[in-house]
């Protein structure tokens, strides 16, 4: 009974994104443009670029995903799609958090995966080697997942409000600061040939906590948004 329900939530986003591929491409393009402007505007010195690469790539990737996800529930709330989630949950006893988790999983695939896909190309401009690149990809995969989950909570809370985009930004940025710090640090260490296990483990721990907490919190926010 639950599976077709989760499939429907996932499929709606997936099919919509296939009909509008420009949206997904736009987020990846934003990432490419922002991170490409840095090598052009800095002194063309390989050491400087390698020093700046982790921070620039991480910040650009997070901004791209944040811009893509900040309004993720707005249309769903306005069109009454979320109303149907709440009604089904009341009728069948399915936890709303499960439906939210399906929506967030779709969001990560559609907003973060295109950015991850072009990250190796951009990393070339900064002269990142194979190992730092692998660490960058791993840390970005974990970090963008944390970001999408936290943004989901903020987007649900901001729900039907005007000026939601600004509010989401204000809520999310302090909360993802630890992910930026440890993620960029992991890449820094990889560039210098040091061990990166601790940072990646911390990112994984953040993701584990966010996976449990964020769908529950977002469900609370969505219920409040449906009520208003």
């Amino acid at each position: 009974m639950t599976w077709p329900l989760l499939r429907a939530i996932f499929l709606r986003e997936w099919a919509q994104s296939l009909r509008q591929p420009a949206d997904a491409a736009w987020h990846a393009l934003f990432f490419v443009v922002v991170s490409s402007l840095f090598p052009l505007s800095l002194e063309p010195d390989p050491d400087t670029l390698r020093l700046l690469a982790p921070g620039v790539l991480w910040v650009a990737a997070l901004l791209a995903v944040l811009l893509a996800s900040g309004r993720m529930f707005q249309d769903d709330l306005r069109s009454g799609w979320v109303d149907q989630w709440v009604l089904t949950c009341a009728a069948t006893g399915t936890p709303l958090a499960l439906l939210v988790a399906a929506r967030l999983a779709a969001q990560w695939l559609l907003a973060a995966l295109p950015v991850l896909a072009v990250a190796p190309l951009v990393a070339l401009q900064f002269g990142l080697g194979a190992w730092p690149l692998a660490v960058l990809m791993a840390s970005l995969a974990l970090g963008t997942a944390v970001l999408v989950l936290i943004t989901g909570v903020a987007a649900a809370l901001a729900g039907g409000l005007r000026g939601a985009a600004l509010l989401v930004m204000l809520i999310v940025l302090p909360l993802v600061a630890p992910a930026i710090i440890f993620g960029a640090m992991a890449v820094h260490h990889a560039v210098r040939g040091q061990a990166v296990g601790a940072e990646l483990a911390l990112l994984g721990a953040m993701l584990a906590v966010a996976l449990v907490a964020c769908p529950l919190l977002a469900a609370v926010g969505l219920r409040a948004a449906v009520e208003s």
Partner: peptide, 15 residues
């Protein structure tokens, strides 16, 4: 055990 069909129709515009 109900159908609620309001003004907003829960339709995805592009599908």
């Amino acid at each position: 055990d109900l159908w609620w069909i309001g003004h907003a129709s829960a339709l995805a515009e592009d599908l």
